[in-house]
Design a binder for these strands. Sequence first.
DNA 1: ATCGATTTGTCCGTATGTATT
DNA 2: AAATACATACGGACAAATCGA
Lengths: 242, 242
Amino acid sequence: MIIDRDNGVPYYIQLMELLRKQIAAGILQEGQRILSEVEMGKVYRINRHTVRQAIDELCRLGELYKIRGRGTFIAKALLDTVEYQLSAKNRFTENIKKIGATPSTKILQTNEIIAPEKVRKALDLDHDERVYFHYVQRSINERPFLIGQAFLPVKYFLNALPYLNVLESMSEFYAKYNINYERAKSTIQAVFPTKEEALLLDIPRNMPVLKVKKLMKSQTGIMIAYGISCYRSDVAELSISW
Amino acid sequence: MIIDRDNGVPYYIQLMELLRKQIAAGILQEGQRILSEVEMGKVYRINRHTVRQAIDELCRLGELYKIRGRGTFIAKALLDTVEYQLSAKNRFTENIKKIGATPSTKILQTNEIIAPEKVRKALDLDHDERVYFHYVQRSINERPFLIGQAFLPVKYFLNALPYLNVLESMSEFYAKYNINYERAKSTIQAVFPTKEEALLLDIPRNMPVLKVKKLMKSQTGIMIAYGISCYRSDVAELSISW
DNA sequence: ATCGATTTGTCCGTATGTATT
DNA sequence: AAATACATACGGACAAATCGA
């Protein structure tokens, strides 16, 4: 494999294709370090900056990632997409088991806070009203799939912290308080992740996420919870039925 | 405004922020050409390549765009997001009028084709079965919002071409054939657009789109239509209620 | 239709800074 | 502390696309 000097195709494009082929062929594997910029320049007889152009582009596409001082690495291969049913009552654990995969949940944070502006508006709370904040990372086959934040007004869920700390599913939780959350409204956007979201989902900043905001109401029309979830766009295919 | 040589912030980052401020302040306006790379280098006393780094990054973020031989231009300002109700029966025109904006539809193509693989599977059609293909671009206030492809089995919609060519809304169309499409299932993904999609939506290739696939069934359970729509992720916020 | 000026695209070379090992 | 690796920045050169004289 060598760079063709005369075919008019830019060297960096040729190098990109070359690296891609090596990844596809399994010569370069997930997590493996590739040659340094200088080394690769020597091997293919092109300037370091030209190598950088190719590598930068592949990083942008999420196929490589760089760590300053350490090197450039092959990004994780994509998973197959998972069709994930959104509904008024969506149970992550059940949904995933149904497709024969292994779900897991890591609780990142649970505490009681003053409702932030957006939550206050969504749930129509008074100033200074308190909510429980429940922050989880959910994975499929040990690979991060979504991160979810839930905001639950304290007034409806008294002394909930102990429960939230050991919680596996939200449905279970609502059942404890005899609350029916029959109706719900969700909005879905495609956005780029924050640094924290990218970290927790193990994706590059340039890979979009599906951001789902959900408002849940009881049968009587009281807004009882607000949630914001981020799904990995390379894995999640949200599904809705009517 | 000048580049600070000593604050440790990379020059190209400083230049990015500087350009952004000028855009935000309206000094640089939509579609306007900015200084050439060489000129900008002279003005801010930095190398052309450093200028390029800043400009490339802003292009990547969709704030600028370049045309070789002509120059670099300010990208179109983003619209406010539009909350767009997805439901079994979703009427674009009505939805948009409701929020006080002006909807418009451009029919890109209508014809009769042999059902492609994916459509055949989705609609459970026989080999070589024919479908009408209906391809539209829908805009809000003259700005592209979505492009939609619909596939309708010929056997359920005889002689539909004349209707499809002058169609404003799909609901109207179904009504003509006395078909109730009560039930539906949609899936939603965030993906990067193809070149054609990016062109029709007037977005850069690096801005994700919301891809919605929709399967419609009649009351009797017959699958009567399949559709694929691409929504601009910077404008569309899909909304679902239960 | 041609030519020249302008502008972005590609490529090379070198030097220095910063993070990691 | 030294070596290695990526990040930033400067310089120059030529190619390719565009536009106007």
